[in-house]
Design a binder for these strands. Structure first.
Lengths: 142, 142
DNA sequence: CCTTCCTGTAATAATTTTTGTTACAAGAGG
DNA sequence: CCTCTTGTAACAAAAATTATTACAGGAAGG
């Protein structure tokens, strides 16, 4: 009924990293190469790899060089990827913005909830931190 | 830059439940009353209270009766509210839908990731289960 | 029993996000 | 200098979220 999902940019980014690791000795990895594996437009890939590059996760240059990983897989957690592509600056929860300040509940609901919501988000992100790209890549190679 | 937030329906639903608890002895609680505290259109309120009703969390009748809670606050967890308003049937994560089956990575990425993503979601939902509406309401009354 | 109030619900609009696409300048390397 | 590919803008399409109007139909009060 309702959607509420974390962008596919996250799983695409994971797919990209695993692909670079998997194929880097066999092929020159380009955005077209990755687009063929992920099956999306190459520009989508480029936008994501720019974000991964900006946090020092991969190396890219223009021209025929192809891209490489800048870190070993076991030094990249799902959280690293998540924060690289999705900008988790803010809250995972969307708060209704104008509760009535003249109502005792409306005035305090934010304070009453914020701490709990932040704690939930922290738990979620800690779990993301506990899984590395190596864990994922190993399951691919089986 | 990107949004990715759980619908405000969740925090609105919490607001609603706390309001009913807080005001039920003083006032007749209607969707207009709640709309004034939350500061959204009454129809938004009605759609949410219907969902809360459908899982047996509140009692509603047409006419002048007003609505009441069907459960004590400490028997309602944030997860109960979350699942009532947001239909968490599916995954919290949006997977890109057509990875290339002819690519060894594309063919296996789903299997390799699904278990981990499900575990992350489970952790998240368990945390939601650990907080009750009583915890929230108590902070309002301070 | 009839008037009033409020829910339940459809229909629709306005925003905001997300994803996809085309196009092209500019850097890198052969 | 030619070719390949990134980096990026501009724009289009699709999907999701939130808001709004309107009204039929129970429930309660007089």
């Amino acid at each position: 009924m309702f959607k509420i999902q974390i962008s596919s940019r996250f799983t695409i980014a994971i797919h990209i990293i695993v692909c670079i690791d998997y194929f880097h000795e066999q092929f020159t990895i380009t955005s077209d190469f990755l687009a063929a594996s992920v099956k999306v437009n190459p520009v989508i890939i480029r936008r994501i790899i720019l974000q991964l590059k900006s946090v020092g996760m991969i190396n890219i240059t223009r021209g025929r060089s192809g891209m490489t990983l800048a870190k070993p897989l076991d030094k990249i957690t799902l959280y690293d990827v998540y924060s690289a592509v999705d900008c988790v600056n803010g809250s995972l929860f969307h708060f209704h913005e104008n509760p009535n300040p003249d109502c005792p509940v409306g005035k305090n609901i934010h304070n009453a909830l914020d701490e709990s919501l932040a704690e939930i988000q922290r738990t979620f992100e800690d779990k993301l931190r506990s899984i590395t790209l190596r864990d994922v890549a190993e399951k691919i190679k089986l």
